[in-house]
C-alpha cells in the first residue's frame, strides 16, 4: 500500500534521512522504532508532506505522492496524528470531532460519523461540551484517534501515541489501535516506547541516524539480542 524508496529528507540544509526504505502492506500495523533524533518523526512528516523530501520515491496505492501537499494526501486517504499537541484545546470535544469530520464534506455524513464515535466511546459523549484541553492525556489521545478513524482513512500515520502517558493508559491506546486496525485501517506507528508497540506490530523497522538498520516482525525484533541491548534498554 505504501512504499518508501531511498528517501532523503530534512529541514533546509540539515539532512536527517539519508536513504530510507520502507514498505507497508494493506491492513498491517508497521512500527518504526529507534532512539531520539534518529529521524522517526521526520520520516512521518515527509511521508505526509509536511516536509518536502529532497529525493526518493513515496508511492501510495501505486501513486507517486512524494511532492504532494498534506491536503491532497488527506483526500487520498492518508491521515496523520502528530505527537503531543494533536487536539484543539480551546474547542469542545464535539467541535474537535466536527473539525475532524471536515473531509467528509456532507453534513449528514458528518453527523452520522460523530454519532458512531459517541456510541463507541460513551466517555467522549459524556464530555462533549467540555473543552478538549481539559481532558486527561489518555482521553486526548483517544479523541485524536477517534477523530481520525471517523473519516475512515486507508492509512494512519501515528507519531508517538504513548508520549507522556501512564503505562495503563498506553495499554488502552494500543487496544484502540488494534480495534481500529481490525476495521481495516492500516497503521504506520513511530514509537520510542518500543516494547508495547512491537508486541502489537505485524512488522517493524529500526531506524538509526537516518537510515534503516533492521527489519523484522514485531515479535522478531523483541527477541533480537542487539535490539534488546541497543534500543529496548536491556
Amino acid at each position: 500500500m505504501l512504499e518508501v524508496y531511498d528517501l532523503y529528507s530534512g529541514y533546509g540544509k540539515i539532512e536527517v534521512l539519508h536513504g530510507v526504505f520502507l514498505r507497508v502492506s494493506h491492513r498491517e500495523i508497521v512500527c518504526i522504532i529507534g532512539p531520539n533524533g534518529s529521524g522517526k518523526s521526520t520520516l512521518l512528516k515527509s511521508i505526509f508532506g509536511l516536509i518536502k523530501p529532497y529525493r526518493g520515491k513515496i508511492q501510495f496505492m501505486g501513486l507517486e505522492i512524494s511532492q504532494k501537499d498534506p491536503e491532497e494526501k488527506v483526500a487520498l486517504g492518508i491521515s496523520y496524528i502528530p505527537q503531543g499537541r494533536n487536539i484543539f484545546p480551546s474547542l469542545s470535544v464535539l467541535e474537535n470531532l466536527e473539525m475532524g469530520a471536515t473531509p467528509l464534506r456532507d453534513p449528514l455524513k458528518m453527523k452520522k460519523a460523530i454519532q458512531e464515535i459517541f456510541d463507541h466511546y460513551p466517555l467522549l459523549e459524556k464530555k462533549k461540551r467540555l473543552k478538549a484541553g481539559s481532558l486527561s492525556g489518555g482521553e486526548k489521545q483517544i479523541l485524536a484517534l477517534a477523530r481520525t478513524s471517523m473519516i475512515k482513512p486507508e492509512l494512519i500515520l501515528l507519531d508517538e501515541p504513548s508520549l507522556g502517558l501512564a503505562p495503563k493508559v498506553v495499554d488502552q491506546i494500543y487496544r484502540e489501535i488494534d480495534l481500529i486496525n481490525h476495521q481495516g485501517v492500516t497503521f504506520l506507528i513511530v514509537e520510542q516506547n518500543a516494547r508495547k508497540a512491537l508486541r502489537l506490530a505485524h512488522r517493524a523497522y529500526v531506524l538509526d541516524l537516518g537510515v534503516n538498520r533492521l527489519e523484522d516482525t514485531g515479535e522478531g525484533l523483541l527477541q533480537n539480542e542487539e535490539v534488546k541491548r541497543l534500543y529496548l534498554g536491556g
Partner: peptide, 23 residues
Amino acid sequence: SRMGKSMRAISDDLELARVMGIP
C-alpha cells in the same frame, strides 16, 4: 457556524488544522 469553528481551530493550531484538511 462551521467556518467560525474552523477559524477558532486554526487560531488554536494552524498546523494541526492543515493536517486535518481544514481549508
